[in-house]
């Protein structure tokens, strides 16, 4: 039994979208989000969707990976669509009628509009995580939050914690797997039906995991301090990401186009 190593969905390919600075991509994502919540008609959504399709094509990420994110919202999507389209004893224009239940035309259109908005949002955010690694996103996030340092927000520490956590996810998964295999060898079972009995089955895995975690934390903290780590403030990076001219022009151009769409459509 192998616990799945949940390490993001990043697809390392060489594409113009991958080459963009994570800050540019996050900025674009925010701009797309704002535009989606301002446009009022299908026209606006259509333009944003086609822009997104071009970006997806440029990123050269396989389609099935981009659309995988939609699985998680299948229920929300069908709810949105059905809640709007279905009418009980309808008074308005109905397309299909089934006893007292009917599909309402206006409602269907509205449901489609809202669903399309969700689909674009989900695809956009999935694309962001497909084209930038968690480490890049952390880096971008830290740079964006830098001004908060003036308000005494420990941005450097947050960056350090994100980085260490990301680094240790595979290590933890591996350790969990090792302990689980060892317990299975001793007759443990992790396939019970009920969540409580399953949670109880994990006890002989959890205790060594936590004990090792705190031991490892001690060793790591000592190692960091022995190397003169004195907090995240003012730390520099070996691989500094920079906003290139391309980044700035892409960001400005896209924001301009999105602003026009948001205002006019």
């Amino acid at each position: 039994m192998r616990p799945p190593v949940p390490f993001g969905q990043y697809v390392p390919i060489d594409s113009p979208i991958h080459a963009l600075d994570p800050r540019t991509k996050m900025g674009l994502m925010a701009a797309v989000g704002i535009t989606l919540f301002t446009v009022e008609g299908f026209m606006g959504l259509g333009v944003v969707a086609s822009m997104l399709l071009v970006v997806i094509a440029l990123s050269r990420v396989p389609w099935h990976l981009v659309t995988r994110g939609l699985k998680a919202v299948t229920l929300l999507l069908s709810f949105t669509l059905l809640a709007h389209a279905l009418r009980w004893e309808p008074a308005t224009v109905s397309l299909v009628r089934l006893g007292p239940l009917a599909i309402d035309q206006g409602g269907l259109l509205q449901g489609l509009f809202f669903s399309a908005r969700i689909v674009i949002l989900v695809l956009g955010s999935t694309l962001l995580t497909l084209t930038s690694s968690p480490v890049e996103i952390t880096d971008g996030l830290t740079r964006i939050m830098r001004p908060l340092e003036r308000l005494k927000v420990p941005v450097g520490d947050i960056a350090m914690m994100l980085t260490i956590a990301l680094r240790f996810i595979p290590t933890m998964a591996e350790e969990a797997e090792k302990i689980m295999v060892a317990q299975i060898a001793r007759g443990a079972r992790f396939d019970q039906r009920w969540p409580v009995s399953r949670a109880r089955a994990y006890i002989p895995v959890l205790i060594p995991l936590f004990v090792n975690l705190f031991k490892r934390a001690e060793a790591l903290a000592i190692a960091m301090e022995a190397r003169c780590y004195t907090g995240g403030y003012g730390r520099t990076r070996l691989h500094q990401s920079t906003m290139t001219k391309t980044d700035i022009s892409v960001l400005l151009a896209a924001c301009l186009v999105l602003a026009v769409i948001a205002v006019t459509l």
Binding site: P3, M160, M161, L162, I164, L166, I169, M172
Partner: peptide, 13 residues
């Protein structure tokens, strides 16, 4: 800081 980070990693797993 390190304990927090490692607990986050464990939570993800």
């Amino acid at each position: 800081l390190v304990e927090i980070s490692l607990c986050v990693a464990l939570a993800v797993v």
